[in-house]
Structures are given as structure tokens and as C-alpha cells.
Lab assay of single mutants.
Amino acid sequence: MSRVPSPPPPAEMSSGPVAESWCYTQIKVVKFSYMWTINNFSFCREEMGEVIKSSTFSSGANDKLKWCLRVNPKGLDEESKDYLSLYLLLVSCPKSEVRAKFKFSILNAKGEETKAMESQRAYRFVQGKDWGFKKFIRRDFLLDEANGLLPDDKLTLFCEVSVVQDSVNISGQNTMNMVKVPECRLADELGGLWENSRFTDCCLCVAGQEFQAHKAILAARSPVFSAMFEHEMEESKKNRVEINDVEPEVFKEMMCFIYTGKAPNLDKMADDLLAAADKYALERLKVMCEDALCSNLSVENAAEILILADLHSADQLKTQAVDFINYHASDVLETSGWKSMVVSHPHLVAEAYRSLASAQCPFLGPPRKRLKQS
């Protein structure tokens, strides 16, 4: 649940008159999402009104509101027999009622949201009550392989729920002597030191190019640089560091992050930047690179990204790559990247197969709970 924001200063709310007192009302909304995959969808019983329910879910471990999704594969009634019906059901509720908006969509073979439908307002739910769409999607369109909505005969539904909580009022009075504290510009100011090479005390040599930097900042941000300058190493004695395995453009992006906490060109060089972040123990930059690479996972590059993640101990990226390969196994196994990995990294192939087997055979063990970014 997000923290209630402070109200904007009255002088910034309007260029008009300023009242002596004010009130700011925040209506709290808890948002969460749920993904439900139905394997072997074409084998569902086709009687009209037949119901399939998901397991229950909530916004978190401490949330007492429990929900589930309900599907009628062949419609709810005679009117909707040519459609799939989809509903959000409130299973248990400690209150007399709650209000919530919802959005349903289908994830296609690429994991993209399609055929989205959402409620136009927050509906009133009581325990045992459901709301949804009797005519969510035509069955003939859903079952047509050309539309790519049932890869490997799996129907994957994605649901986003927004639950309306209580409202909170914050009130106060205006004073004539309003003090406005300026925003912190530390990142910009440190970035200026790097860009202008002011007050530098060490030189970093990268592929024949020299960059002036500040030992204190490098040591504070990177345990690797800290070790170089702290001990009686040649880098500490000469205040000069030779860097041979990072390209200059990648190095500059890494230094921008060290000084400012930002990497504006990360998406263009996420793979190389991940390697640099791993070498210099820049954990936050490493996770930022993992996130960017996750966003660009595809059938063509899944094997290469899995190898990269394994090489640099990028655990979150590795998990996402394995899950992606499992979901698109029939396509990924035909790529040149996968065939190369079979020869060069057989242990990763074995890991992917083990994960695929456990996903398809849940009876082999208890269900695993899916539970950071600093």
C-alpha cells in the first residue's frame, strides 16, 4: 500500500486566492494483479454453464480479502454459449462490502496482453458476489490457432484489481511565511564533478583513453575500487588504474551511474553493462540491467540471455529466462542460440529441462510459493 502523499503547497495549487485553511483528501486504492494459466484448455468440458475456478489470491499475505477468477468455457447461458465468460469473485471478506475495479486480458504466445476488457467503474462486491463479462471473447476466435491465444493449448488470463480503501483527510492552515525547501541536487552536482573533471585525484585508463576521477567517490560506490585504493596496490601508489576489459562507451555509462545513480543509455548496452556491474560489484546497476534484459526477452535471444545471466550470477534474470524458455519451449528449441547452448553450456540445458519437467508435473513435489530491489 502506498504512503499517503503530503498535500501540495497551496501557493502551487492555483494562481488564484489562497485560503486560510485547507483539506486534502486521499482515497486510498490498493492495486494488484494475478495470472492464471489453464493447461490443455481444449479438453475443458463443453457443457453450457460449466465452471472452472482459479485458486484464491489477494494483494498480499496480510490481506484478508480473498478473490478468485471464474471461467465458463462455453458461456454462462444460452445467450453467451458462443463466448467464454469471465468473472472476478470475492471469496471471503471481513467487511460487509468492498468496491473494486478490474481489468481482464489474455496473454498471447509472446506474453503480450490482448483482448483487454475492464470495468468502467468500481463495482460493489459482497462475499460470494462476482462481476465480469458474460461475453468476454468469442470461442471461435479464441480457438483459432492463427490468433495465437492458446500457445501449446494453454489459456493464460491476466487480471488487474484495484480495491478502494478508506479515504484519509489531511488538513492544515496557511501561513504568510511559507518556506520552500529546494530539491536535493546531489546527483546532478556529483555528475558535474565527473563531467568537468574537477578536483580529480586519479586516472582511469580504458582502451587508450584516459578519464579523470575521484578516488573517494569510486571507493564509496564500488567495493572493488575501494579494495584497489585501500591496500598497497599499484593503483593506490600511482593513482592510476588500467581497465582492459570494458569498452570506453560502456565504461562511461558505468561511471555515470557511479556518480549519479542513473544510467540513461542502459537499454542500448544492458548486456555489456551487466558484465561491468558484476565485475565492479555495483549491485543496483546489475539489477537494473537484469530488468532491462528481462523486458527484451524473446524467442530468438532467450538462450543467449540465459548464458549471460549464468555467467554473471544474475539470479533474477536467470529465473526469468528459464521461465520464458519453459513457456515458449517449442519455439526456443528451434533457435540457433539454443542449439549452440546445447554444445557450449549443457548444464544450462539440463537446468531448463528440470524446470520444465517440474512445471508440467506438479505432483512430483509440493507447490512452490512464489514470493528486491534495493
Results as ranks from 00 to 15, higher is better:
residue 149 L to A: 02
residue 265 N to E: 02
residue 338 W to T: 00
residue 309 A to C: 07
residue 157 L to I: 10
residue 43 F to M: 05
residue 355 S to F: 03
residue 143 L to S: 10
residue 224 V to Y: 15
residue 322 V to G: 05
residue 160 E to F: 09
residue 98 V to Q: 15
residue 307 I to R: 08
residue 344 S to N: 08
residue 164 V to T: 07
residue 180 K to Q: 10
residue 229 F to H: 15
residue 72 N to V: 11
residue 118 E to H: 13
residue 291 D to L: 14
residue 350 A to E: 10
residue 61 A to V: 06
residue 322 V to T: 09
residue 105 S to Y: 13
residue 152 D to K: 14
residue 133 F to W: 08
residue 164 V to L: 08
residue 293 L to P: 00
residue 116 A to T: 03
residue 28 K to E: 05
residue 172 G to D: 08
residue 101 K to Q: 09
residue 168 V to I: 10
residue 12 E to S: 09
residue 77 D to S: 01
residue 14 S to F: 13
residue 341 M to G: 05
residue 314 A to K: 11
residue 331 D to H: 12
residue 57 F to S: 01
residue 188 D to G: 03
residue 187 A to F: 09
residue 208 G to C: 10
residue 67 W to L: 07
residue 65 L to N: 13
residue 201 D to H: 00
residue 50 E to M: 01
residue 78 E to I: 06
residue 118 E to I: 06
residue 278 D to L: 10
residue 251 F to V: 12
residue 157 L to V: 15
residue 371 L to I: 08
residue 217 I to G: 00
residue 319 T to A: 11
residue 349 V to A: 12
residue 107 L to Y: 08
residue 240 R to F: 06
residue 83 Y to V: 09
residue 58 S to R: 05
residue 18 V to S: 07
residue 207 A to N: 15
residue 281 A to Y: 04
residue 36 W to N: 01
residue 216 A to G: 01
residue 99 R to K: 05
residue 102 F to G: 00
residue 180 K to W: 06
residue 211 F to D: 03
residue 360 Q to D: 15
residue 195 E to A: 03
residue 53 K to Y: 03
residue 19 A to N: 13
residue 259 Y to M: 07
residue 373 Q to C: 15
residue 20 E to S: 09
residue 70 R to Y: 15
residue 259 Y to L: 05
residue 354 R to G: 14
residue 150 L to P: 02
residue 99 R to M: 14
residue 304 E to G: 07
residue 90 L to P: 02
residue 357 A to E: 03
residue 320 Q to H: 07
residue 110 K to V: 15
residue 169 N to D: 02
residue 337 G to M: 11
residue 29 V to H: 14
residue 362 P to K: 15
residue 327 Y to P: 02
residue 359 A to G: 08
residue 348 L to K: 00
residue 124 R to H: 15
residue 352 A to E: 06
residue 363 F to K: 15
residue 209 Q to I: 08
residue 69 L to A: 09
residue 193 L to N: 00
residue 362 P to W: 13
residue 358 S to M: 09
residue 8 P to M: 07
residue 205 C to G: 13
residue 339 K to F: 04
residue 10 P to E: 03
residue 26 Q to R: 12
residue 159 C to I: 08
residue 124 R to A: 15
residue 157 L to A: 07
residue 162 S to L: 01
residue 89 L to K: 14
residue 142 L to E: 04
residue 75 G to C: 09
residue 303 A to T: 08
residue 225 F to K: 00
residue 65 L to H: 05
residue 112 E to M: 06
residue 58 S to Y: 06
residue 118 E to P: 12
residue 162 S to D: 07
residue 91 V to Y: 01
residue 265 N to F: 06
residue 193 L to W: 05
